[in-house]
Design a protein around this nucleic acid. Sequence first.
DNA 1: CGGTTATTGTCCACATTATGGACAATGGAT
DNA 2: ATCCATTGTCCATAATGTGGACAATAACCG
Lengths: 262, 262
Amino acid sequence: MDNGLPITLDPEPRQGAQAIRRALFLLRVLAAGGESGLPLKEVVQATRLSRPTVHRIIHVLMEEGLVERHERSGRYAIGTQVPELALARPSRSPLLAAADDILRETSQRVGDTLFLTVRTGNDTLCVDRRIGSYPIQVLSIAIGARRPLGVSSAGVAILAALPAQESRRIAATNEPRFAGYRTDRQTVLSEIADARRRGYGVREVGLVQGTKSISTWIKTADGTPAAALTISAVRTRLGPRREQEVVETLLKAAYEVEQKIR
Amino acid sequence: MDNGLPITLDPEPRQGAQAIRRALFLLRVLAAGGESGLPLKEVVQATRLSRPTVHRIIHVLMEEGLVERHERSGRYAIGTQVPELALARPSRSPLLAAADDILRETSQRVGDTLFLTVRTGNDTLCVDRRIGSYPIQVLSIAIGARRPLGVSSAGVAILAALPAQESRRIAATNEPRFAGYRTDRQTVLSEIADARRRGYGVREVGLVQGTKSISTWIKTADGTPAAALTISAVRTRLGPRREQEVVETLLKAAYEVEQKIR
DNA sequence: CGGTTATTGTCCACATTATGGACAATGGAT
DNA sequence: ATCCATTGTCCATAATGTGGACAATAACCG
């Protein structure tokens, strides 16, 4: 696969921090659990770590305030310290700022809900959502929703925009988590291939019954995908003809965002 | 010191996570560096860890996206992943919601800038700020500003509201960081004692020349301090007589917040 | 410029730390 | 009252993370 081009490969990861890496991975898994959090068991399954290890790390994170445990349910979730640490950063990322106007205009034009989704590690994260004017809107994904790369059309689009090698690596890494979303590695890999061929990602069978999603990718100057732009609607609203129209609109919008963030 | 009362002592901290604890401590130190971040050297000083250890951990955190390095300055700062993790939580804490109206009314009444500051670990963190109507306002502290407990009037107030044992422990822990704020443990301890006697914290010599701050504490139902309510103004605006008036207003506002969060 | 210092980065022998198998406790469910 | 599912704890042991010593830059300066 080495074609001599200056592809930026990740330098071999630094050693001597297994525990820290594990803890951060745990945090991301917990983040995927959102406000309601996850029971220990699911965290163990998603991480493929031993239960004692997960237990120990999660309790240390609790002592440190990065994780909370819900009184009633016993589920573990992201704690108050995390947003507190986040205050050290400017409130709005360049991407969000750049996409703001474009999202508004585009969602008005197409009438359906638009999502802006970024990649964060091996996950997708919904960072903005604009509701359209059509009376039936797909709102299943909220801002902050996090899923393994590959299980949503946005995730597939982002994987399709990555070098094949890396997308395969991520699909392999996320494999243990796919079961929870009723998919598997083979399916994801073929969806990625489809998306590469088409130039955009599609999901006929959304996580919500009867919905369909289409995603285009947004690349940074160096060619790595920065985000995905997704439209979701009830399936009947995205038949072949309209799919073409909508895709054109999305591609144009994605291109505009790309220009703004350079 | 054991008087038989059911004082909640921290259970002995869990073992087997030295590295994780260190990494989180590093994150908090970096958070104190705000947007501009800190050079490695200062992180080393603040943490009292060996330089190789800090270096290794910080670079792992960079690989994981929790820390960024500024291109120009080479300083390390909190990275994009942190706010991304924070999206897993509801946007607004109960405290902020409860304090919202009260802060607005109170800042209108007194005319000077009000700050709402919480304790997070061994730090204070400014989580809200309301600017008053008087033409000279002290704005030195921004939302997100983080300092070791003890160096601001808010920090002193919170320490004063904690059990003596714990406030002493924190003052000792933070000692290495005090130098950077031109204070020391002895001074802090005596300020805490003063605040306990008075019922509120005062700082005649603010971090900014010629300003003065007064802080009252806000306690949760279980008696632990949840936050501090601070007024800052140019010193001449807080002479003895007005100090009394302002303190009464602050105490009343703090009491109202306390009622709301129970 | 060459030289000096301040800061950041790397290496690796070694001791401490973190690991996970096995066992215990808790708490619903029936 | 008994069972099953889930969470919690222990501890011998291997592997991980540590920090002293050395190296490489970057910043400063005459």
